[in-house]
């Protein structure tokens, strides 16, 4: 029963996808090999192609098909502004907002002392080199507003300040369309601290 083995293999492989358990994997597998073989072929080629061509940008860790990602190599971006984010997904969100026209550095995580994730694991030596070699005028810390995110931001801020470069942090406030009543106390406290003149 060779095809059964192949089917099992496919189901297991599909379980690697986020949010996909054995049941969903089975449904997907049946669909791909049964009903939509053309689509399955396209998917398989797309995955192979992506794996071959996509790597991490040499400068910022962003996904890229070239040594430098489109953001780092674009002449329209202000390379003097560097935004530090925890994950690729954070970078994508900021890009979607079009709120920022500088470049990025993706840490791929945050400081996590009990898990042994420190400066080396976050590639901070590379970030330091970047700060030393380029003309960065402002580093925007856009780590998550958690204890770990703040710890990471504090530490990087020290590295940046040592070099006499300006460091800023994203303001914290009430989400648009949100109701004050339902906003958690830390967010409210942060929003009060960051209030502005009208």
């Amino acid at each position: 029963m060779l095809e059964t083995i192949a089917l099992e293999r496919l189901k297991k492989a599909l379980c690697a996808l986020p949010g996909v358990g054995p049941k969903t994997a089975q449904r997907m597998a049946f669909h791909l090999v049964g009903r939509d073989r053309g689509g399955a072929r396209t998917l398989s080629e797309a995955i192979t192609g992506a794996l071959q061509s996509i790597r991490r940008c040499r400068r910022c860790n962003n996904f890229s098909e070239t040594e430098l990602c489109p953001v780092c190599s674009s002449p329209k971006r202000n390379a003097a502004q560097l935004c530090v984010v925890e994950t690729q997904a954070d970078l994508e969100s900021i890009e979607t907002s079009k709120a920022f026209s500088g470049t990025y550095f993706v840490l791929m995580g945050h400081l996590s002392p009990l898990d042994g994730i420190g400066p080396e694991e976050l590639g901070l030596d590379r970030l330091q080199r970047l700060l030393d070699e380029e003309n960065i005028e402002e580093v925007v810390m856009a780590t998550n507003p958690t204890v770990e995110g703040d710890a990471t931001a504090d530490f990087i801020a020290q590295l940046v300040k040592q070099r006499g470069i300006r460091v800023t942090q994203l303001a914290r406030g009430v989400p648009v369309g949100g109701e004050l009543e339902y906003v958690d106390r830390n967010t409210l406290a942060g929003a009060f601290q960051g209030r502005k003149d009208l």
Partner: peptide, 14 residues
């Protein structure tokens, strides 16, 4: 302790 090792490493980085 990992937290201690990391703290020392971070100080060194700084």
């Amino acid at each position: 302790l990992k937290s201690r090792e990391l703290f020392i490493k971070m100080r060194r980085t700084l």
